[in-house]
């Protein structure tokens, strides 16, 4: 994880976690991504949050529905490639008219070295919008926490589904090149 623990990166990632914490998110389902590493690590060690590693992103949508039925707020952390795995499960958010918050790290949009990430990364906003999820973007480190905070207010305040897309420019394509090169 050394490459994602640089000061600037850690700072905006901490802002994202803090925004979820301030929104009283108590369940965080995730499929790991380097861009979510700090949020996952802090969620795993926070006594008030249940961090749940998922086998597929669709599980996180269903878990969020169950959490809300039981009176807790949840969030789903995933990579853009996972958005496609959630499509039918997102029928829950409109049928239940439930709050849903997801934070998506983008691949395939800027400086991507793996062409297999490009199709789903390109389709991510349209797929989410087609399923009734409002899409918000964070492009710069200084705004990441603010965008997540605003998205949480919107989702939990009015029982709608909101996705925050953390741009690949924000996350830094270089990180992924280093990590994938090590595989």
């Amino acid at each position: 994880m050394g490459s994602v623990e640089g000061n600037a990166v850690t700072s905006w990632q901490d802002d994202v976690f803090d925004a979820l914490k301030e929104a009283d998110v108590r369940q965080i389902g995730y499929v790991p991504d380097a861009g979510h590493a700090t949020t996952i690590r802090r969620a795993e060690t926070d006594p008030d949050i249940r961090a749940v590693v998922l086998t597929t992103e669709a599980e996180g949508v269903a878990m969020a529905a169950g959490a809300w039925l039981g009176g807790q707020r949840a969030a789903l952390l995933m990579q853009s490639s996972g958005v496609g795995n959630t499509i039918n499960m997102l029928s829950l958010v409109s049928n239940l008219r439930m709050p849903f918050l997801t934070v998506v790290t983008m691949r395939g949009e800027w400086g991507e070295f793996n062409p297999w990430q490009v199709p789903m990364g390109t389709g991510t906003p349209a797929v989410l919008e087609a399923m009734g999820v409002l899409v918000r973007h964070a492009e710069h480190p200084a705004e990441a926490g603010l965008v997540v905070r605003a998205a949480a207010d919107l989702a939990f305040g009015s029982s709608v589904a909101v996705a925050v897309l953390l741009s690949q420019r924000l996350i830094g394509a270089k990180v992924f090149v280093q990590k994938e090169g090590a595989r």
Partner: peptide
């Protein structure tokens, strides 16, 4: 609907 989601709805509910 939401086929495949029943168990995970149960988990979210049970944790809450």
């Amino acid at each position: 609907g939401a086929m495949g989601g029943a168990a995970m709805i149960g988990l979210g509910l049970a944790l809450a």
